[in-house]
């Protein structure tokens, strides 16, 4: 993991988190990040997402400069409800979708009631 103090030009991405029946789905907007620049790590209770952007090589005079040039860095704390073994990630069109599976203990369970 990169040290945040060393990398000051990091930026956060806009994201959504929603709950599905058996998973937590995260959607992070990371324009300019491709598959090889993406690094997702789970260290204990920490979920760390690093998205390295393809470096802009434009040369000339800047007339408008609104795009933050930094790489993406997001950190989340995940608790025991997340099954560490079932984390899926997909990246398309600059949007990262993470599917964090819920552990068996928290999944909704249907209890059958038997009438006697």
């Amino acid at each position: 993991m990169k040290n945040i103090e060393e990398k000051k030009d990091l930026r956060r991405s806009h994201y959504d988190i929603r709950e599905e029946t058996e998973s937590i789905v995260m959607r992070l907007e990371m324009p300019g990040v491709n598959k090889s620049g993406l690094n997702i790590n789970v260290e204990g209770d920490k979920l760390v997402i690093d998205g390295q952007r393809i470096k802009d090589t434009k040369k000339g005079d800047w007339l408008v400069h609104e795009i933050h040039p930094g790489d993406f860095h997001m950190e989340y704390t995940i608790d025991k409800t997340i099954d560490r073994g079932s984390i899926e990630a997909a990246l398309s069109q600059g949007v990262l979708t993470l599917i964090l599976g819920l552990s068996e203990a928290v999944k909704p369970r249907k209890i059958e009631v038997i009438s006697k």
């Binding site: 434009k58 000339g60 005079d61």
Partner: peptide, 14 residues
Amino acid sequence: AVDVVENPDEYLVS
């Protein structure tokens, strides 16, 4: 967000 860069040959917009 938009970037515009001018160089002698062209304008580059991101």
